Simulated scan of single mutants.
Amino acid sequence: MDDLTGFQRDLLYVIASADQPSGRTVKEEVEQYYSADINHGRLYPNLDTIVNKELVEKGQLDRRTNYYAITESGEQAIEERRAWESQYVD
């Protein structure tokens, strides 16, 4: 996970907390945290990056809607990151 941007890490956390969220759902959650609009040109390339790194899998809900789901590797990466963070923050 050390090669992810903070934004990509945030996407990973949002996906891990939901049951197969759509891209729109992920976008809405991240926008609440950032208090700003996230455009598609930023969101989807970053989602593709974490899919390509096999931290998240991408599937199809219907012809127009994809879902994202955390993989075992993604869960492990989050656990390792949180363990590392806990050394510095209680």
Rank of each mutant, 00 (worst) to 15 (best):
D2V: 13
D3K: 14
L4G: 02
L4M: 06
R9A: 11
R9Q: 06
D10M: 15
D10L: 15
L11S: 05
L12D: 01
L12M: 06
A16V: 01
D19C: 12
D19M: 13
S22W: 02
G23F: 04
R24Y: 10
R24N: 12
V26N: 00
E29T: 08
V30W: 02
E31P: 01
Q32E: 15
Y34V: 14
S35I: 12
D37R: 12
I38C: 06
H40M: 10
R42C: 08
R42I: 11
L43K: 04
Y44N: 09
P45K: 10
P45H: 06
N46K: 12
N46H: 12
N46G: 05
D48Q: 15
T49N: 12
I50C: 04
V51Y: 02
N52W: 03
K53V: 04
L55I: 09
V56T: 01
V56D: 02
E57W: 02
G59Y: 01
Q60E: 11
L61D: 07
L61I: 15
L61M: 13
D62V: 13
D62Y: 11
R63Q: 14
N66F: 06
N66T: 08
Y67E: 00
S73F: 12
G74V: 05
A77E: 03
A77C: 07
A77Y: 00
I78H: 00
I78A: 05
E80N: 11
R81G: 01
A83L: 08
W84I: 05
W84V: 05
Q87K: 10
V89W: 06
V89I: 13
V89Q: 10
D90Q: 12
